[in-house]
């Protein structure tokens, strides 16, 4: 059974069709990349997967739960990280993690915070206000928050945006390790094509709300005759046909 199953999903705002009849599946322990330019429908799709937004039509099933009827059962086993959604800046890192540990029903909160602090090198930050941290530190804290409940499904919206290469690599390594150890299913929206190539088993390309292509990164590279996913992304974004000679 697929961990995430999206069938004929659409979202309409007035005359605008933000997501147009898309579908995909992700099985346990796999990572799916959701790619597309600005306005392609990635954020809208993630919001519907998280239950923040009610679809106009279609269905979403996560961990066997229909998100239209039983989203809270799934949400307890999911988590989410995005640099565009902040954590309360006046609370310390430890207080923030404690809040979300309670919200997600974590048992052994002190132990779990200690584990995450050790694994993500947050020990020195625990007593600092979240609002005073650097972008890289905030991303590590956001990642710790997203792992507080040992999620079976992790939704990541540009998890390494605004990070220096060293910190970005640290985060990617940590995600690879967590997935290998836990069997977590990850859905990743990113504009960093190297990151997508490294982390994703499959990629869904969105454009103007529609799925325009999909496949494993290696298959897409071969199909488009390109050396890296960024060129494939540009081919799709600029409507260059598959058969057209790469320039």
């Amino acid at each position: 059974m697929n961990t995430i199953s999206v069938v004929h999903l659409s979202k309409r705002y007035g005359d605008t069709l933000a997501v147009d009849d898309i579908g995909f599946e992700v099985s346990r322990g796999r990572t799916l990349g959701l790619l597309g330019g600005n306005g392609a429908g990635k954020t809208t799709t993630i919001a519907m997967l998280l239950g923040l937004l009610i679809p106009t039509s279609g269905s979403i099933t996560i961990l066997g739960h229909d998100m239209a009827k039983d989203r809270f059962a799934a949400l307890a086993r999911m988590n989410f990280s995005s640099p565009y959604v902040a954590l309360p800046g006046r609370l310390t890192v430890e207080e923030n993690l404690r809040v979300y540990a309670h919200l997600y029903g974590v048992r052994g909160i002190d132990r779990r915070i200690g584990e995450l602090a050790e694994q993500l090198d947050l020990g020195a930050l625990l007593n600092r206000a979240a609002g005073e941290l650097s972008a890289g530190q905030k991303t590590r804290v956001a990642l710790a928050k997203s792992l507080i409940n040992r999620p079976d499904v992790l939704l990541l919206d540009e998890p390494t945006a605004s990070l220096d290469p060293d910190t970005g690599d640290l985060v990617r390594s940590w995600l690879e390790r967590y997935r290998a150890e836990s069997g977590c299913t990850i859905l990743l929206a990113s504009h960093n094509m190297a990151e997508v190539e490294r982390l994703c088993d499959e990629v869904v390309m969105l454009k103007q709300g529609r799925v325009v292509d999909r496949g494993a990164p290696a298959d897409l590279l071969e199909r488009y005759g390109r050396d890296d996913l960024e060129q494939v992304f540009l081919d799709i974004a600029r409507d260059r046909a598959l058969t057209q000679e790469a320039t």
């Binding site: 923040l52 307890a76 989410f80 959604v85 954590l87 800046g89 979300y100 919200l103 997600y104």
Partner: peptide
């Protein structure tokens, strides 16, 4: 004000 509502509403908090 703390732009935290997104995290709150995607948690299992009813």
């Amino acid at each position: 004000w703390s732009r935290n509502l997104g995290h709150v509403f995607v948690s299992p908090l009813r």
